[in-house]
Amino acid sequence: MTKYSLSSVNLWYHDFQALTDVNIDIDNNEVTAFIGPSGCGKSTLIKSLNRMNDLIEGCRITGEFLLDGEDIYGNIDVNMLRKRVGMVFQKPNPFPMSIYDNVAFGPRTHGIKNRTELDEIVEKSLRDAAIWDECRDRLRKSALSLSGGQQQRLCIARALSVAPEVLLMDEPTSALDPISTGKIEDLINELKREYTIVIVTHNMQQATRISDKTAFFLLGEIIEVGRTEELFTNPKNEKTENYITGRFG
């Protein structure tokens, strides 16, 4: 089932057109990977999926962004949109507070004050992010005391704490070592049972390992989108083949 349906999407930063006539469907309970050389528009598009680009001055967007059939650039509550669509960034960015408070931050913002309820949310989120066993005895310690890989999983737990439907991940493992990367990839594979995941990655092997669908971007356009196995063994477009085989980019 389609979660996001984007059609004729164009995006400008002032005079510069960063996305041109983008059309893509993102399916429920799947991992969709965006690949392409730097500056091709993949991070711009992922940030548009929960209107993070609203914060950028001079950003103008046209086209249709349907989330479950509803236009996210229409008359909707942006805070509620960001509750439904969580985001994890390239560099782990825990708040300078305890592990517990990092995860409880979102639910508290959305009005949950009951301690027992918050405890349950924190535990479930940390379990779902596969970090509970490593931090259950140090929930009151600073999140900054965690390793880079643990901090990134904490950020995923923080994103999960508000029960989103979609998880956007912009190069979530590019700053991590191979062990932490492996844990995040295993986690993504688990999370797609409950969430729809969109990931930007520069790592071709990562895209083949974790994604069901891949979209290749070049100069603000989607050149090819298809099932990951098919796109990486038999791409239809020569530009895709040239990029993924390292002939350019």
Partner: peptide, 9 residues
């Protein structure tokens, strides 16, 4: 080399 696409085939 982790070949993909035509290289992998």
């Amino acid at each position: 080399e982790h070949p993909v696409a035509g290289d992998f085939r």
